[in-house]
Nucleic acid binder design. Structure first.
Lengths: 203, 203, 203, 203
DNA sequence: AATGAATGAGTGTTCATTCAT
DNA sequence: GATGAATGAACACTCATTCAT
């Protein structure tokens, strides 16, 4: 019995979160209104607030969820794998994320752009720790001569920047590309693999 | 007489625009309030609206100005120059822009992220035309064997993404880098030059 | 069957009324919320409204009950008793009421203070009648020389004011007394008895 | 010039405060609405909030003002005066206050009744200090045999209770008295002077 | 050119009450 | 009897804009 009720609750919460993701990613925290979210979710505003305590709570729920999946691909980089394969795999995973979850990417970008008021702790804590760890892995590969000697953290920044760009700046890309490229992310994938493969070649 | 008044008017408009840039870049269009801008500019709200018709007008004035300087570095790429020098120069110019005008970069990013409702025309028009032109230049260099064969537009995207990242995601960078890197843009410059130089090498 | 259900119903109603008394006396009618009351009573809000028609009904039920016990001590004053004993007994009874039922006293005070919108009829009817009756008793004692000649109604007002003060203004008393007086009502009892005894002495 | 503008502002603030006093004293803090106050003051709600930061600020402004005048009569009690005259003067002053400022008295009573959440500090600080000081004066008179030996603080409580009763419980008094007493405070004054004069006689 | 004052349309949130089960 | 869900009406407060001077 409790299971069934919970299922309904979960479903409604999902509907709300999905609508909220849409609205927050398009308008940022302050720009979004609960009216928009409720309307998109097909609920009355007070009813929505029956499932979530408030605007902030909805937003933070989204952010917290996002962060988990956000860090996941980077965690997959293993020191005992082939450097180029690992990095290419990471780039592809990030691009896939931009393709499948562009709204999440824009939500994240919006938060950072506005100074990350609700996520700075996560960035300075878990993210920094993970980057430190993986930067050491990259540095190890460079020291072994398997990778060009570059700053490992800035390499990660470049991967983030280029791959997330396909989600965050999609409007600009579409405007610039017109109808010429039916699948920009595919084209981008080919380009980025080439760029980073050659650019990181140790020779 | 009109000349003297105009000078004062221009100065006040500059003060307002500077304050507006600050506030809009930190909070986005909807997140910013005229109170904040007026306060930062040291004017009363009604007085500010004597110089600008409204919130939208201030914002659009900023955007329009921005676009001019935004396109400038790209225009500098000349077909008769050395490909690598030209591209490295562009990257440096973009990075310098991120260093000197991070607020402008974030303003632009915010606008794109939110769907570019007030700039889509500019993107589809002037920007697309310029990109088409310069993409042809890049393609020419590639055809001449002076540059690796890659998609020229996505190359531009990558340059934009990586260089603007130093302004738009500065908060994240600072969080991840801690106090270790006193000048991340300098480090980034070295890294990006290496990446793109090697990555675009025609061999 | 109806008897058994009724017993449960009565018990639940008691639980609700007790919680409501707590909340209403602390926050007034408008300041109190059904959520608070239901939470304190350990019931769900809709379930609580199964037992009472609404906020108003709960509140009025409390008020009506209160009035009965409120008038009770005054009724005990008998014309054939000893004047001083009767009056001292009344003062003591009122003080005991302030000690044992401070929440009821504050509920009453709140209602009067707010203009007695839900109790004015009771005041003008039963209360006035009772006061008129007992005022005549007091007047009789005065005419017989057993009590100082004072306005009997204002004497009652003074007794009400001073005794109820120990419940209604308890917060202020505690603040003023600090920790010096472990039992202010006891001290007050001694004081009030002295004051009224001497003050009403016919000599 | 600044003076004239300030005068208008002050006048509006006064109008608002007067309306707020009316509404808050009738309904308590939570029971009062800004709509009521603004309507009574003849202003739109946002315009009212142009003069005061919010509901709390209006309320606290009232409370702070009140406290000053509230303590004033008690301060007038002088150790070198005649005990009975001083006390009778204090009672009269308090009664006058109840006559002239019944809304202020009810505002105060409401705040205390609800636990004094916004005034407890003032009660424990300045009020307690003043009471301690004046209680010592009273005690001195008692030690000199000029006043009956009673607890001086509870004497003050009794004076407060009886005099404020004429403002706080006016509705009840009117209901009980009907039309018989055209000036209850006058009658009360006579009664209270008799009560306290005889009640505090040292013999 | 500048400002105090004013306001209508929102904006997040609360709450008593009702509905469906 | 009991509860999760839903809602309309309020409510405190914000904000871009306008008006009067």
């Amino acid at each position: 019995m409790a299971g069934k009720t919970t299922r309904i609750q979960r479903e409604k919460r999902e509907v709300i979160l999905d609508a909220a993701l849409q609205v927050f990613s398009e308008n940022g925290f302050r720009g979004a209104t609960l009216d928009q979210i409720a309307g998109l979710a097909g609920l009355s505003k007070p009813n929505m607030l029956y499932y979530f305590g408030g605007k902030e709570e909805i937003y933070c729920t989204l952010l917290n969820r996002l962060l988990e999946t956000w860090l996941e691909p980077l965690k997959q980089i293993r020191a005992d794998g082939d450097p180029h394969k690992q990095i290419m795999g990471y780039i592809c995973a990030k691009l896939e994320f931009s393709r499948s979850y562009p709204r999440e990417s824009r939500l994240f970008a919006n938060e950072i752009l506005n100074g990350a008021p609700r996520m700075l702790g996560e960035l300075k804590g878990p993210l920094k720790a993970l980057v430190d760890e993986k930067a050491a892995v990259l540095q190890g590969w460079m020291d072994e001569g398997k990778l060009a000697q570059v700053d490992p953290r800035h390499l990660l920044f470049a991967i983030w920047a280029t791959t997330q760009h396909y989600a965050d700046f999609a409007v600009q890309m579409d405007a610039v590309l017109g109808d010429s490229d039916p699948d920009p992310i595919k084209t981008g994938s080919v380009f980025l693999e080439a760029l980073f493969f050659k650019g990181l070649d140790p020779r």
